[in-house]
Structure formats: structure tokens, C-alpha cells
Design a protein around this nucleic acid. Structure first.
Lengths: 194, 194
DNA sequence: CCCTTTTCACCTAGGTGGTAAGAT
DNA sequence: ATCTTACCACCTAGGTGAAAAGGG
């Protein structure tokens, strides 16, 4: 992980494309123990983390009724380098910096693969590594060739507008595209000659 | 083709990455007659078009000695959607808008696949369509499954600086990234309220 | 002298949070 | 009252030809 934990991701977007935002901080994994010459698909799935609807009240997140469990829409994001060899996946950290979230069920009509979530629900990302034949197709005779990893510190609550100002500040501080909102943006170049 | 013909592509780039430019106008093809369910790789190769070295003199291109035929470097650019089904390739025009040219033999050490050419030589692009097994691997027992297409109107001379002002103007007029050099750029918004 | 490399202002393309307007 | 959408200024990232600087 780029950062240890976070709690909110925001949906938004311009124009005719379904509203969406990249997940940030983004998921990033180091993998070892694969067969260097075998082929694997690597992908992230995002599932409901608990059965609650959440709201932000009095400075903290509290439950508020039941989650909408019959929500439809894609929950998978296949890493763009899939399929690839074990050697490739183990060579360096695997980042999901371009994974996109949306609350628009009509997404994924375009070719972009976005994960569809429901605002004010808590989610748990899961990492899947599936050994495939050389063609990138899963071998259905070998169901044991799928491994799934869950890191509870990557749970988050999806939002359409930020609630917790700590999260907003974390994003401003670390997301390069939010540089314009940093307090010290002007002074960065006047304070030092680097 | 976006345009019928052209004569010059220029090498250039900023910074530490090998000098390069996208090919423009770019190659674009409509394909039919494939097996909709079979898999194919589609790629462009760029080969020497004639045995001459060229120079621009007196307002036109003239030959000037022999071509350097023992030039090394990658000459292939695999379409980024490869491998894919016949149905996919026939659905819409196949464009090579991100194909990059360079004169730097040390290119392709990075992961970007660039085509390495020699300045002031004339080149002929070739389109290759290769049927592959479902895994994207060429079946060597079936060498007849490769088809190659050559369009002589796509020949061009590589340059490091533009020689023919007609070519420069064609690029300024049609390449969106060169919009700032169009004569009517300022007036486009003052002349009309669109 | 001729060709190549570097640097630049100026674009396209698209990812930020803020804010105001819209929806329920 | 609460949540969602639309739009904005402001960034990152990278593709242009022009022009100056470099090289043989």
C-alpha cells in the first residue's frame, strides 16, 4: 500500500462519461512464491465489507440502517498487464493506480473497466491471482489454482462528497493531481533553490 | 489512411527518453474476411523502400549515394489490442496513432516499443495479420496463416528536421497537438460564436 | 555546410478538490 | 436536511513545430 489505510473514495467526473474517480491512495502489492514460467491473471475485486449503511455524524462514521445488498454492476478490475508470467509479477511492485470507481450502474458500456459501488457503503478490496494456461484462459479443471488475499487495512467507505477532512487533506498532500490545493504550493520554489 | 500520402516524419523528444515522434499522419486500416472467432495479431513493420540515401535539394527530394542497409533496431509495432478475435479487428477501423519512430538505436531498452529508422532514408510500412492460437502464440506448423499488405502510398522519408514546407503545413493543419502553430488559431473564436 | 540535438512556448488530454446548483 | 451532480480553476503528463545550439 502507498499508505496504510484510508476511509473515503469519492465519485466524480466531467462530461458525458459516467462519473468516476481513481481510487486513491491506490492498492499496490509485492508478490512472491509464484512459478516464474507459469502464467497468471492478477485482479482486484471490491466486495461489501459489512451489512450496514453508513453516515458521517458528529465527526465520525456511524451505521445507519441496512446495506443495499442487491446492487448490480462490475466489481472486478483486471490488472492491465494481465495475463503475464510469474517472473513478471514478482519482478516489481504491482500497482493499481488507474483503477476507477463509480456509482453509475450504466458504466462499463464504454470499454473502460470501472468498479461500480454504492455511496455510503463500506468496501473490502480483494487481490486475486489466478494461474491460467498460456493463452490467458483459466483452467476449469484446476480450481485450486486461484489464490485470494485480503488486507483489512484497505477497507474504505465510498462517498460522493468528502465527509472527513482528514481524508481530504491526506489526498491533497499525496495525490499529485491535487497539488494546486496544497497550502505551501506557491512557496515551494521560493523557499529553496532545489 | 487518414490522408492519402506523405513524405516526411521527424524524430524528436525531450529529456532522458530516446528521441522520438509519433508517426503522423498515422496508418489506419479497415479489415474484412477474417474468421470472426479466430485470434490474430495485427502489427506494422517498416522496411527500407529503396537502396538510396536521400537529400532535399532545390525544392525536391533527390537520391544521394547508397542506403545504410546494415542498420539495426526494432522495425515492428504490434497493435496494442493484439491478440484479439477476427470479430474485434473487423468491427472498426484499426488505427496506429501511437506508433513511435526514432533514430536512436538504444531505444526499446525502456518498455515502449518504438520503430528505429535512419534519417534521410525512404521507408515502406507493411501491415501483417497473423492468425495465432487462443494463447496469442503463432502456430509454426501453419506458416500460411500470415497475411501481409503493402500500400505504396504510405511510403515516407524519415528526417530529423523538416525539409519540405508542404509537409510541415500538412502537420500543422491536421495534428491536434500542433494547433498552436495554425495561422487562424486566435481568430477561430473571435470570428464565430460557436 | 549540412545534419542532429536541445530547449521552448503552446497545445491536447485527463485527474484534483471546491463550490454551487439540483434532487429527494 | 442530506446527498448527488455539474462545472470550475488548477494541476500532471505528454505530443507539437520553431529556433537555437551542437557536431562533424
Amino acid at each position: 500500500m502507498l499508505l496504510k489505510s484510508e476511509k473515503a473514495f469519492r465519485f466524480k467526473s466531467p462530461g458525458s462519461v459516467p462519473l468516476h474517480r481513481r481510487m486513491f491512495p491506490f492498492l499496490s502489492f509485492n508478490i512472491n512464491g509464484l512459478n516464474p514460467t507459469a502464467h497468471y491473471n492478477v485482479f482486484v475485486e471490491v466486495v461489501l465489507a459489512d451489512p450496514n449503511h453508513w453516515r458521517f455524524q458528529g465527526g465520525k462514521w456511524v451505521t445507519c440502517g441496512k446495506a443495499d445488498n442487491n446492487m448490480q454492476g462490475n466489481k472486478m478490475y483486471v490488472h492491465p498487464e494481465s495475463p503475464n508470467t510469474g517472473s513478471h509479477w514478482m519482478r516489481q511492485e504491482i500497482s493499481f493506480g488507474k483503477l476507477k470507481l463509480t456509482n453509475n450502474k450504466g458504466a462499463n458500456n464504454n470499454n473502460t473497466q470501472m468498479i461500480v459501488l454504492q455511496s455510503l457503503h463500506k468496501y473490502q478490496p480483494r487481490l486475486h491471482i489466478v494461474e491460467v494456461t498460456e493463452d490467458g484462459v483459466e483452467d476449469l479443471n484446476e480450481p485450486s489454482k486461484t489464490q485470494t488475499f485480503i488486507f483489512s487495512e484497505t477497507q474504505f467507505i465510498a462517498v460522493t462528497a468528502y465527509q472527513n477532512t482528514d481524508i481530504t487533506q491526506l489526498k491533497i498532500d499525496h495525490n499529485p493531481f491535487a497539488k494546486g490545493f496544497r497550502d505551501n504550493y506557491d512557496s515551494m520554489y521560493t523557499a529553496s533553490e532545489n
